[in-house]
Design a protein around this nucleic acid. Structure first.
Lengths: 355, 355
DNA sequence: TTGTAAGCGTTATCAT
DNA sequence: ATGATAACGCTTACAA
């Protein structure tokens, strides 16, 4: 899902050149061939296929047979050019390796499928440049709309492209933006998770939050809020890149210091995995020495020992609602923006049991 | 990534109708606007952007400025229609929730990115109908080529579409097909994994293999081969759908019987997760009572207790080579097909240590 | 009910 | 070095 970045041209020009033109030329059978074979005009063939015009039964039959015989398939490119729209939507996620986003992907695909739409999935790697590239690309591909999770620095020029087409933001809030959004009540969720730790007897809490989006920030607010209510100070707070390795490093640093926290809270499953790995490598007993709690349900969260306490996000619902909002907006571009806030669900497990 | 399946029309007609036309119409600034603004013809604008024709410096400057001022972006649909090709490739995988395929997806995207290509990712759910739908759709979208992992019953009509465009098969072999392929040496890998179990003292081996593709079958062959060489009989062999739940069910059945195996070998990470869950639920000690070994490295394989012995596949390499083969074929459609077979790597861990 | 023809936004050919 | 123009495959007024 890409275009080459030239670098020597101004930003506005990036990605508009056509690199290394492919040489392969498939021989297509076109609507003309069908028309000729059926002895009708191309318009008639089109009408038969569109199923929206009155056609004599016998004519339809002839056309359909010609279609079958020639194994004709309409060229979607041409159709989309003519119609100035397509039955595709884009889905731009920040990390395809994050199970949260693959789950969302599945939900979006299913919901779109039901409406006869295809989904183009793009991966920005939390990279604002790639984000802009993809948003622009999708725009240039005439997609009907886009669902995406913006990076922290959601750029204004991508904004320009996105302003021209319907889009829905998921997972992350963007300040001062009049758009449909589907987000988690992050503050409450983190508050609840933190409170759970505190009430179970953990008072030296370290928080590891992703720095790539507003999500981590919001979750840190819930973290602080719960601590404050219990008149506690955070033991440590770090904002780091949402990758396993960074979680590992941060946890290692935390655990190697003279005094260490008695619980670590993470803002996504990649960080959780890194922290868990660090705890194992250091042979630190969980939760006796250090408790662990994080965000997002995964394949492995309940499989490890101890299983990990998490806030599960309703991924199926997020994807489905986002897709519905997008279709609504496609149909009615002027409708006032809707912000849907969903609640996470605390799943208490062994990694944070009562002290 | 879809079209509606009518059902009342013959297979050849499936997916060629246009459902629920979207209503949104983006107002685009076209090459004409730029031409007018720069006081040149559209041809000149095109040439400036294509960078392949001699243009007076001053003219180029004017055009570039107009482009920037109008924030012009070429319409990729029109370009693709005109050029009869596009800078996109398709990637059709059978399960986006399988970490193996997301890893492949990342590798393909990176490799394609370097060539200025975008990747459209589609999810077939091991469903031959969806597979056909997607292959056809990608064909109709004028993609330059497709990389995919076919289902067991890779259908002949999808074959028809795919025959018209360059494609590369990954992960699974398809009998009697003259195509580029990138596969694992499954027999050897399973042989090695089985041998590892046997040599570590496990002799009552149960094998759980995915039934959705040839991969499971091939791996079962390696399993049998190793057993035979050691004059052992398989304790049990089952072919099941490659999902966590099925792995769980199968393992439960195995473990609830009067006598149970002393080791379970699985053919993919989804099954492994299910089996592991079952072992936990049954409170069966691993590997003392039952050992476990499977395929594919995952986030969690090394995190659980005990960590799980696996054959790791070189996902990065598979994706990269598949992409390269595809580009080669796009450039030279007639070149003889290449079959690249890669070796898996045994990662010995606690779940199968010496008895 | 069907055919003719214009036009979607590009790029390539042929002039100039 | 640049401009007209045809063509890519399709849909849709408008005519018949």
């Amino acid at each position: 899902m890409i275009l080459f970045l030239s670098g020597i041209f101004p930003a506005a020009l990036q990605g508009i050149f056509f690199l290394k033109p492919p040489l392969y030329n498939p021989s297509m059978t076109s609507i003309k061939d069908v028309a000729k074979a059926a002895g009708v005009s191309t318009a008639t063939v089109s009408r038969v296929l569109a199923k929206n015009a009155p056609i004599k039964a016998e004519t339809r039959e002839r056309v359909l047979q010609a279609v079958a015989r020639l194994n004709y398939r309409p060229n979607l490119i041409a159709r989309s050019l003519r119609a100035q729209k397509s039955a595709r939507i884009g889905l731009v996620v920040s990390d395809i390796r994050n199970p949260f986003f693959t789950a969302i992907g599945r939900a979006v695909e299913d919901a779109a499928y039901e409406q006869g739409y295809s989904v183009l999935m793009c991966n920005t790697d939390e990279n604002p440049e790639k984000e802009e590239l993809y948003i622009n690309l999708l725009h240039d591909e005439n997609v009907a709309g886009v669902i995406f999770s913006p990076t922290q620095h959601f750029s204004t020029s991508a904004h320009a492209s996105s302003a021209k087409m319907p889009f829905v933001i998921i997972d992350r809030a963007v300040e001062g933006m009049e758009t449909d959004m589907v987000v988690l009540d992050n503050v409450s969720a983190a508050y609840e998770l933190t409170k759970h730790l505190i009430e179970n007897g953990y008072h030296k809490l370290a928080g590891l939050f992703g720095d790539a989006s507003t999500t981590g920030l919001e979750r840190s607010r819930g973290f602080h809020k719960a601590l404050k209510e219990h008149r506690l100070e955070p033991f440590a707070v770090h904002f780091i890149a949402p990758r396993i390795e960074r979680g590992y490093d941060a946890a290692m640093a935390l655990l190697e210091a003279d005094s260490h926290p008695d619980a670590i809270l993470t803002s996504n499953s990649l960080l959780t995995a890194g922290v868990f790995q660090a705890l194992r490598d250091k042979r630190i007993s969980v939760p006796n020495e250090v408790a662990l709690a994080g965000f997002d349900e995964t394949t492995w969260g309940g499989l490890v020992d101890p299983p990990i306490t998490v806030i599960a996000q309703p991924t199926e619902e997020i994807g489905r609602i986002a897709t519905q909002l997008l279709f609504q907006r496609i149909q009615e571009p002027a409708r006032p923006p809707e912000i849907v806030t969903l609640k996470g669900k605390l799943i208490e497990r062994g990694s944070s049991i009562k002290k």
